[in-house]
Design a protein around this nucleic acid. Sequence first.
DNA 1: CTATCGTACTATGTCTGTCGTAGTATATCT
DNA 2: AGATATACTACGACAGACATAGTACGATAG
Lengths: 112, 112
Amino acid sequence: MISISSDVIRGYNDTFILYLLLDGPSYGYEISKKIRERSEGKYMIKETTLYSAFTRMEKNGYIESFSQNAENGKRRTYYQITEAGLQYYREKQEEWTLTKDVVERFMRRITE
Amino acid sequence: MISISSDVIRGYNDTFILYLLLDGPSYGYEISKKIRERSEGKYMIKETTLYSAFTRMEKNGYIESFSQNAENGKRRTYYQITEAGLQYYREKQEEWTLTKDVVERFMRRITE
DNA sequence: CTATCGTACTATGTCTGTCGTAGTATATCT
DNA sequence: AGATATACTACGACAGACATAGTACGATAG
């Protein structure tokens, strides 16, 4: 069974997170679930990867956090995308187009 | 100017190398040039990345090396793909198909 | 005849996103 | 009462990519 290696997705976790934040503020657990759902279980972000991404991205100014009591009485840290984050997301899309094109030049059907 | 980050291509350098070795044995400098050419200058593998990839892939059994005097009198280390390397290349292709599908689910046109 | 450029590497250490493991804490379900 | 879901934090390890530096030789230019 072929699965997606972390090396391959490296550098795109941030993009996945930003994509989901385009719909409004969200938090760790929800984003994690949505990534799994949206990829139809083909990709699941690890908790530690996710939370360290939050830290990094906030430091880079791509997201902002605020704390709020959730409906279930729990304390949650919500994140929302910033203008810089939106810009970064756009750049990543352009980069993806380029990358896809390049990678596919190195794909070949092997007959045998 | 958007360029391809190393994080994005991470894990695909090996695939690029194997792709070129499908045509027969080759060596560092030549592979480096061919990657640049084939990607139309959009991607250039760093020397250190390339040679460390050779070492790793040989250890993994994906390539085999032999030393030979080149036409110009220089000594070169040639690499050729193995059966395991071919298998690995096929798996990477499958993984790519999956990855591409997943990444594109997180791409969205932003209207504004 | 000397300097530069292209070729063909090797050595060494750093960076960083990801991951493994572990732990904390509360709410809800069985 | 114990399991499960939620919502995190801490800490260290891993590995591919990279920066920097150095070696060595042949061909070419001035």
